[in-house]
Amino acid sequence: MGELEIGVGIWSLQSTKAGPRHFAYLYKELMEDAAFCDQFSTIKTIWQTEHHFWYDGYCPSLLTVAGGIAAATKRIRIGQAALLFSQHEALRVAQQAAVLDQLSGGRLDLGLALGYRDNEFDGFNIDRRIRRHRFEEGVEIVGRAFADGPVNFAGDQFDVPDVEVTPKPFQSDVPIWVAAVGPDPIRRAARMGASIILSDALTLEQLRHQIDLYYTCAEEYGVDVSHAKMGVLRRGWVAETDDEAYREALPSLRFLLREQLGGWRYLVDEKGEPVGFDRPRDLDAAADRLVNVHERTIGRPEKVVRGLREIAATGCTHVIFGTRFDSLPRAKYLRSLELLATEVIPNI
């Protein structure tokens, strides 16, 4: 079992119906949170999340906002879980990523996903059906843009002439992470040799299965994945006692799962079919199942250490500890982060 890295997240900057906030307040809080996490060497990475045109202002521009995070911090790495890559222009993403990597002194973990909400593709006038093509061609463009020499790419979705992207990133090898929900994306990520970010909707057993699948595929393709990281998003919360942690975090977690993920048909029922607001009972059941999964990383430090060790035992090497819940008192939130950094991570 390799060493388990812990990142924190996932910052979405939402002003929800239940917890409306001024956006300037939310962005200020993000910068303060980032500086707070930066103090703890045990927290490896700060992770952001993206959506577009959602009613509550869900953050749409991760690399731009990451510029602010980079300016607020000195040490912590900055990752995207994930940038909805198929909805963007790949060349522009490559340019912004390179600038961000210079600005931050090489602290970028570029996390990419396909994106799935119809409404977002429609807003950018991009046909959702070609998202896989855009993703795969886009990854190729980013790779060429980061390397020395011109991009020179002629594909079905993108056409980039004989032009060299400058500046280059600071890191000679910017880590690329791919958000992988389901077997096909895992196969794709393995073929690329990319690190993966697995869904927060997986049980331990499913997690182990998907990580095994990744390594099996990599071997089939003959790709060296010795440097790839196996990441997973887990919701979590640390307090002095289990009871306190449940009282603080569980209602917010339930709200997050039902209202937010329900609205996107992100949750699935036992047959793997997406569940939305049209099936309220199934949605509740799906949310409850997930609460049970995440409950293992909610509690006093000793309990969360145990929960994280279980995750490490599946082959996972990076946990995105998802502590961002709506409307929680700030002092308690910072206390949870501090306990994570000082009492949990050093003892995993």
């Binding site: 521009s61 690399l63 731009t64 906002v65 990451a66 510029g67 602010g68 980079a70 300016a71 340019q95 912004q96 390179a98 600038v99 961000l100 600005l103 992207v165 400058t166 500046p167």
Partner: peptide, 9 residues
């Protein structure tokens, strides 16, 4: 090459 990223900083 990105006024947006630097603007945020």
């Amino acid at each position: 090459s990105s006024a947006s990223v630097i603007g945020a900083a």
